[in-house]
Nucleic acid binder design. Structure first.
Length: 430
RNA sequence: GCGGCCAUAGCUCAACUGGUUAGAGCGCCGGACUGUGACUCCGGAGGUUACCGGUUCGAUCCCGGUUGGCCGCCCCA
């Protein structure tokens, strides 16, 4: 018995009706990021597994248990990319971009893959829009990038998104904090939940953002990462906050925000949305500075800062807002008699060549059924083409929303429709 | 990876403690109205009740497994 073939768990199809939302978000990103001087890059979906192990970190959940890893026929270990920063860095290094220009701004969008349990706003193939800025260690670069995200979320008209900010220090000051934190946690070991007892060994920073109330209390009373920052890190963080203020960007300093990727130094940030539809998937974007990663991958010693947003979650919020982004046809061409089929096909072709969106039922059928189809298509006007129109060269544009039909010469249809479209645009969105 | 809930038409859901031919609304197609959609009325198509197995005279219903979906934990986008 042949079983129905289904899509892979956690990977879904995006069909017309929904895809317009995705295109809207992607289009805004391309336009806006371009304004900030970011150029689009596309890297392969699969990379050498070692790339992620060395950048994201062997002990992270992402690398430790969420990667789609497989051997190709040549015996190489490949992994479907679980995030976009490492592949972009690899490309930057491989093409020796640092020798060509001092500052490089890149953005990317596309699918990422993580093998994990699905729920709202979380999929095994999910989509990110991200950006990376290479070559500047200045806080101004961090601020510019956050400004770009803020402007982007604004363009999407998404409300109730909070910017959370923190600094994790660098190789000069982090070890001291790390040691102090472990020492503190050891002393309070019995108050922590089971997970946190384990985290103490594997990744003590993670205890800081445990959701367990008791753990939160312990963490809150413990050493504060910001108080351990060395002078240069302190100055960088202060500078960043000053610049955000200059830009009018609101933020919250959250000294207990850590992130699940090991490559971050100094600045880390997250954009958190409060909409209930997201459930526990409230982080719509996040990123930070990774000044040491390039060198760690065997590349040049180039500082960088980057972020990624979850396109799936942005689309979810946009869907909740109830806004629609479909563009219905300008005109539906209906055929009154079989003898007019060819003329209708040719008319539609001509109008499309002139830039209009034209729908046309190639099956023909009764005029009534074509009218139903025209109604459903959402077309603003319908033109019925039959023998009478062909001989007279005159037709009528029937407004589907109601009102009087507009008489029009068959040669002037495009002109008339464009004028109508303009009139609507000037009247404002409805 | 752990815990809980769920799966009937394209969609949202029915089917009385296991009992003939699994229904409705919406949607789709056609007609009433043979050159004009929406509203109304009439008709039609569409199901191996997710899949596999078990209990039973008999399973959409009870049991087990598989697959998929939802929620919490974990983690993240």
């Amino acid at each position: 018995m042949s079983r129905q073939i289904e899509g892979v768990k956690g990977m879904r199809d995006l069909l017309p009706g929904e895809i317009e939302l995705w295109q809207h978000v992607e289009g805004l990103a391309r336009e806006l990021f371009g304004r900030f001087g970011y150029g689009e890059v596309r890297t392969p979906m699969a990379e050498d597994t070692g790339l992620f192990v060395r950048s994201v970190g062997e002990e992270t959940d992402i690398v430790g248990k969420e990667m789609y890893t497989f051997d190709d026929k040549g015996g190489r270990s490949l992994s479907l990319r679980p995030e976009g920063t490492a592949p972009a860095a690899r490309a930057y290094i491989e093409h020796a971009i640092n020798n060509k220009e001092p500052i490089t701004r890149w953005f990317y969008m596309g699918p990422m893959f993580r093998y994990e349990r699905m729920k709202t706003g979380r999929y095994r193939q999910f989509y990110q829009i991200g950006a990376e800025a290479y070559g500047s260690k200045e806080a101004a670069q961090d601020a510019e990038m956050m400004d770009m995200v803020v402007q982007f979320l604004g363009a999407l008209e998404l409300k109730d998104v909070t910017l959370n900010l923190n600094s994790l220090g660098d190789e000069a000051c982090r070890p001291a904090y790390h040691a102090k934190l472990v020492e503190y946690l050891q002393a309070h070991r019995e108050e922590l939940c089971e997970d946190c007892k384990r985290r103490m060994e594997t990744n003590p920073l993670r205890v800081l953002d445990c959701k367990n109330p008791t753990c939160q209390a312990v963490a809150a009373a413990g050493p504060n990462v910001l108080e351990f920052l060395c002078e240069p890190c302190r100055a960088h963080f202060d500078d960043l906050q000053r610049k955000l203020t200059v830009l009018g960007i609101k933020y919250v300093v959250n000294p207990r925000m850590v992130r699940g990727l090991d490559y971050y130094t100094r600045t880390v940030f997250e954009f958190i949305a409060s909409h209930p539809a997201l459930g526990t998937a409230s982080t719509v974007g996040g990123g930070g500075r990774y000044d040491k990663m390039m060198k760690g991958l065997g590349g040049p010693d180039v500082p960088a800062v980057g972020f990624a947003m979850g396109l799936d979650r942005l689309v979810l919020l946009l869907k909740e807002s109830g806004r629609t982004f479909t563009s219905p046809p300008d005109l539906f061409v209906a055929v009154a008699d079989e003898g007019s089929q060819d003329a209708a096909l040719a008319l539609a072709s001509r109008l499309r060549r002139e830039g209009l969106r034209v729908d046309f039922d190639t099956r023909g059928g009764s005029l009534k059924s074509q009218m139903k189809r025209a109604d459903k298509s959402g077309a603003r006007f319908t033109l019925v083409l039959g023998e009478a129109e062909r001989t007279s060269g005159q037709a009528k544009l029937k407004p589907m929303a109601g009102g009087d039909a507009i008489p029009v010469a068959l040669d002037d249809v495009a002109k008339t429709l464009r004028a109508a479209r303009l009139a609507t645009a000037q009247a404002g969105p409805t």
